[in-house]
Amino acid sequence: MLTEFGKVLIFLIIGALFVAAGLLVAWLLRPRRPYPGKVAPYECGEEPVGDAWIRFNVRFYVVALIFLIFDVEVVFLFPWALVYRDLGLFGFLEMAVFLGILLVGFAYVWVKGDLDWDKPRPILPQINRRQDLQVEPEKKNAEVPVAN
């Protein structure tokens, strides 16, 4: 009477209703008394300054892009894996060609340095100090005299 997909649909609808019911009950029961101090943005107790959208390093975008491409590749691998037994050698070689093309892309990304994560170089503070003054070796183990 109900196809398999129909059962999945019922499952999805009940899941959505479950979530909606929880949110509805919460909306009914919770107090709602907004005032300007409460809805102000949170900045650890300080007055919020500046924009909430800040600049961040581009390496996050690069890694996300590379992940997306290889994730789609994996998505293509799943149905192929299900029917692999029926495809035989032809299926294996075809997927090998597909993976080989993407492997070339992977090698390019690796050599280009887009997979390197530790990029920041710390800048140490410059202290103006005379470079010719050294510690005299025999003083290192001496007693600590008090100037008097």
Binding site: R30, P31, R33, Y35, G37, K38, A40, Y42, C44, G45, E46, E47
Partner: peptide, 14 residues
């Protein structure tokens, strides 16, 4: 104290 006041304001009831 001013930060505490602001943080108290930002807590949700109850």
């Amino acid at each position: 104290a001013s930060r505490i006041k602001r943080l108290y304001d930002q807590m949700a009831e109850p």
